[in-house]
Design a protein around this nucleic acid. Sequence first.
DNA 1: CGAGTGACTATTATCCGTATTAGTCACTAA
DNA 2: TTAGTGACTAATACGGATAATAGTCACTCG
Lengths: 205, 205
Amino acid sequence: MSEIESSTPQARGPADHSVREQIVEAAGEHFSHYGYEKTTVSDLAKSIGFSKAYIYKFFDSKQAIGEAICARTLSAIIAAVEEAMAGAPTPTEKFRRMFKTLVSTGVSLFFNDRKLYDIAAYSAGEGWPSARAYCERIRQILTEVVREGRESGEFERKTPLDETVHAIDLVMQPYVNPLLLQYNLDVADEAPVQLSNLVLRSLAP
Amino acid sequence: MSEIESSTPQARGPADHSVREQIVEAAGEHFSHYGYEKTTVSDLAKSIGFSKAYIYKFFDSKQAIGEAICARTLSAIIAAVEEAMAGAPTPTEKFRRMFKTLVSTGVSLFFNDRKLYDIAAYSAGEGWPSARAYCERIRQILTEVVREGRESGEFERKTPLDETVHAIDLVMQPYVNPLLLQYNLDVADEAPVQLSNLVLRSLAP
DNA sequence: CGAGTGACTATTATCCGTATTAGTCACTAA
DNA sequence: TTAGTGACTAATACGGATAATAGTCACTCG
C-alpha cells in the first residue's frame, strides 16, 4: 500500500533484478554522502563493479535513479507517519500525530540528511512522479482520518468531504512539501500544533 | 499609518530632500525595467544627472535603495487591501476580501512586474526591515478584523486572541509572503476562498 | 541469445584571467 | 559650510577555452 515505486514504471530491465537493487543501494549511499549533482553515473557503476553502460539497462536516466532514491526517502516519511498514527485513539489525535510527525520527520531529514532532502525538494519542485505520489498518499491518509472522524460524529458533516480535505491539505502543504518546508523551518516546531488546533476547531460539529 | 519607510531609518541626508526622491523615482524605473542586479548605482546617478558618489550621501548602500523600492511596492499592496476592505459590511467579509486581495495583488505583481516582485521575494528571504514591516502590518490588520468579529459576536471568543491571530497568520503566510507565493501560484486562485472558508469555520462561535 | 562493455558524441560544468561594480575619501567650487 | 565629484580599491561578475559527464551503440564473450 505504501509502495510508491509501483507508480513509477521507469525501469528498463526485469523489475526484481539484483543488479537494480545494487544500483539503488549504491545511489542511496552516494547521493546521501556527496549529493545528486556531485555523484556521477560512473561512480555508481564503479562502486558495484560494473560499467556505466550497464546502469542504463536498468534505468532510463540518472534522474530515474534520483526518483527511485527520492521515492524511497519519502516512503520512509510515510512509514513514520503511519507508525505514529497507529496507536491514536481518536481521529482528532490521529490528525495531530499525522501533522506533527510529517513535519518533524521532514525537519529531521533536512538537518540530518540534507543531501537527500535536497533531492526531495528538487523532486517536489519539478513535479516528479515520486513527489506527486507522496502528496497523493498524504491526501489519502488525510481523507481517511476525516471520513472516520465524520462517521464517529467527532467532525462536522455539512461541508463536502472533498472540500474539507482539500482545504486542510492546503494548510499542511507548506510544512509537508519539502520544497516549501525549507522556507518555514523557523516556525516548524509550533506550526503543527497551532494549525492542528485551528483545523480541528474548523472541524468541530 | 501605512508608511513602511518610517520604520527603516537607513537614510543619510535630510529625509525630505528632493534628490532623495529623485533617486527613489529613478530606482523604481530602473529596477522595474532591468531588475535590481542589472542596474548599477552609476546608472541611477547618471539618470538623475549626478555622480555616483552623491547617491551615497542619501543611502547607505545599494541594498538600502532596494529596500526603499521594496517598501514602496509592499505599501501599494497594503493600500489595495485597505481599499478592498473599506466597503465590507462584516468582519467575515473583511477577512475574505483581505485574503483575496492580498493574494490577487501579489499574483498580479508577479506576472506584471516580475522584476519588482523578485526584489520583494528576495527581501522576504533575507528578512529585510521592509518585508518584516509588511508582515507586521498584515498581522495588525488581521488582529483588528478578528477583534472586531469577536466584539460583534460573529467570531468565537474562547481561544486566546493572540493564538487565533497567529494561527490564521500561519495559514495566510504561504500566499502573502512573496518568497513563498511564487511556489504556490498553481493554487493561488482557489486557495484564498478555500482557506477563508476553513478559517471562518474555525472562527464560528 | 543475453550479460556486459569500450569508445564515442553532444551537452553541461569548471576554471581562470579580465572587466565591472559597490563603496570610500580627499578634494573643489560656490 | 554645503553641494557635489573624480579617482581609487577590493570584491564580484563575466566570458570563453577546457574538462567532465550523461547517454548511446555497435560490439564481444560465454
